[in-house]
Structure formats: C-alpha cells, structure tokens
Design a binder for these strands. Structure first.
Lengths: 194, 194
DNA sequence: CGCTCGTGTTTACGGCGTTAACATCTGTCG
DNA sequence: CGACAGATGTTAACGCCGTAAACACGAGCG
C-alpha cells in the first residue's frame, strides 16, 4: 500500500472531499469546482474522474460531508440537552441548525443545495431521523398518528431552515438575529404542541 | 426612434430580462446565462454589458422579475380573499407562495436566490410589505409591539419558504404535499396567534 | 519476469463571463 | 443638409470551467 508514492496518491477520493470542504469553508459554492479541488490535492483535474462519475458527484459528496458536520453539531447539542422534555430538545436542535447556518454560511450553502446524488452511506448521523425521533416522543403513548408526526417534523424543519435562510440573507445584525430566533422559535413551539 | 432598425435593437434591456425569464421557465437556473440570453435576443454576448455592469446584474434583474411575478400571484390571491380575517388571509398568501414554488420550481429557484444587487424599483408589489400589512392587523388597536410584529412576519415567511423548499426537494407526491401543507399551516396559524 | 488494471498525466474541445478595439446608428448643432 | 459625438451594437481574444481521449506509470498476480 504505502501512502504518497509520488505518482499514485493512495487515498485521493477522501482527499478530494477534504479539499472540497476546505474550499467551501473558504470561498463558498464558487470555490467548489473540479479544477480547484484537484489542484488543492496537487493532482490534475482529470484524475477526479477516476473516483467520481462527474464533477457534480464530487460536489455532492462535499455537500454530504457538510451535512454530516452539521448533523454532528446537532447531535452534540442534543447530548448536552439530554433529560430535557422533547419539546425543549427540539428547540435546541433548531437553534443548533440556525447557529450553524449563520456561523458557517458558506458550508451551509452546500447543505441547502438540492441533492443530485443519493449519499453513499445512509447510516450516518442524519438530521431528519433525529427530528423524527424527538417528534415521536410528543405522541401519546400507544398511538402514533403518522400525519401528526409528519406535520410536526415538517414544521420544525421548515421553520428552522426558512429562518436560517432569511436571517442569513436579510438580517445582518447579530442582536436582531437572536431576538428573532427566540421570538420565532417560541411561536414554533406553540405550533408544535398544538 | 423606431424600434428594430436591423442594427440597433431599441429596447434591449427589457428584451434581455424577458428572454431571461423565458429561459428560466424552460431550463431553470442553468439556462440563465449571459450568452444564452443574448443569443435568445439575437444579439452578441458583449451587448449585454451596455445595459448591465455584469452578468450577475442581469440575472439579478431576472430574479427580481420572478419575484414580481410571484408577488402578483400573491396579491391576486389576497384580493380574492378580501373580507376574511387577517389570519386567514395570511394563510392564503402562504398557500399562494408555496403553490407558486411547486408550480414553477425553475422560476422559484431564481426567487430564492440571494439578492446580489438591490432591485431598481422598490415600489413594485413586494411580498414582505404584504405580509407586514396583514400581520399589523393582528396587533391590538393602539399599541403595535414591533418585536411581536417581526417575529410573526418571520414565522410566516420562514415557514412558507422552508415548507416550499422541503416539499419541492423531498416530497414528489402531490397528495402528500397537500396534506403536509394543510397540517403545517394549521400549526403555523396557531403559532402566529400566540 | 511480464501482464493487466487501477490510477495518474497531457491535451483538446466547447461553453462560460468579461474585456478591448472597432463599427454603426441616431440625435443634435452649426 | 451635413458633420460630429455618444449610445449601442460587433468581433476577437483571454482565462476559467467541465469533460473526454489517448497515453504513462506502478502495483500485484500469474
């Protein structure tokens, strides 16, 4: 095996995704390009096509990486909120989503990109499943109303995502952002419990 | 003056935006490019730069056009809901937003693009002002709590936008979409009145 | 040792945004 | 009317982009 033999790279696929993540953090979507990622790995652009069927698949892999990073944040937040009522944990997860979007707007622009290719591994930390698990706790014991679960999941996800996007694009002031997050999430909580 | 003299175009700026709108409807974001829009107008790509400082400004103009089209839809829906309580009109506006996003997903991808350049005219139909006007009716007479108004506006806009995006990307089935829209907007209504 | 295959390279093509230099049309002033 | 000037078009070129074809190197297996 032996990594970096001078000619062969050894683990180019992972290196490409790593480089893509770094470029995304630095330059946002416009930095995530086949040629730039390849150059960042010290490799020709054509080498990418040995590991991805197209450039879109590479950038989809970087986007998936970004989603995993975000999901890890949300799971960590959830761990530190263990023991709290489900509705409070749901709020913390939403706050985590919004905080990530505002702290890493360039990475977030990949997260919120429509998924062109399905992710390779589905067993990774997954934000939707996380939300669903908490929402299920809101159901009365014994009877899960699937429709109620769906609408609660959708409300949680849609409001968090929509709020993140609007704050990022239209509310530059950090203090105003905090006020709005608190006010909106209060209302979302009411809607979730209805 | 005389339009179309064979060499001079006459009203190229508007024609470019019109062509951009048509291309956006047909091919989505990837169709909205300087060269293609110029070609659709029977004009060279460089001609664009006599009317827009950069290609981004042209596509921003097309995006603004898309927002105006959407806003017109929403105003029309509002007209047909005149007389109903404010909370019901708010819901209809939200339904209109979501319906447009799902009916014209390609145009909507321009709408939800971050605005690079401020629109030329701000006096046009504007979705945010529309929402604000209705939300103001929810305030108790005499005392408007600006913070409450903001959080209600944000909840309305964020949930509609987020729901539209999630449905577009992850819920292909029309019937499932309707169920989710109804269920989520019910909950949003509760949160708005809180 | 030598074959094969995985994985890299170079080169080239067409499309993109953008600029510079040039051409034409139109309206205005003498 | 005629010439000049400015607005608005043209072509040609540059560099970046994704992608494909043809080629080259290196590792593992017979």
């Amino acid at each position: 095996m032996s990594t970096r033999s001078g000619y062969h790279h050894g683990a180019l696929r992972d290196a490409l995704v790593d480089a893509g993540e770094a470029l995304a953090r630095a330059d946002g979507l416009e930095g995530v390009t086949v040629r730039r990622i390849a150059a960042a790995c010290g490799v020709s652009a054509a080498a990418v096509y040995r590991h991805f069927p197209s450039g879109d698949h590479l950038i989809a892999a970087v986007a998936q990486r970004a989603r995993e990073i975000m999901a890890r944040d949300m799971f960590a937040r959830l761990d530190s909120a263990a023991g709290k009522p489900a509705i409070d944990r749901l709020r913390e997860v939403g706050e985590s989503y919004i905080a990530f979007a505002l702290a890493e707007p360039r990475l977030f622009s990949l997260v919120s990109m429509p998924m062109t290719a399905p992710p390779d591994r589905l067993d990774d930390p997954n934000a939707a499943d996380l939300v669903r698990d908490i929402v299920l706790e809101l159901e009365p014991p014994g009877e899960v109303d699937e429709q109620r679960v769906s609408s609660r999941m959708m409300l949680a996800q849609a409001s968090a995502h929509g709020l993140a996007v609007i704050l990022r694009d239209f509310v530059p002031d950090a203090q105003a952002r905090e006020m709005l997050i608190a006010g909106v999430l209060d209302r979302v909580g009411v809607g979730l419990e209805a």
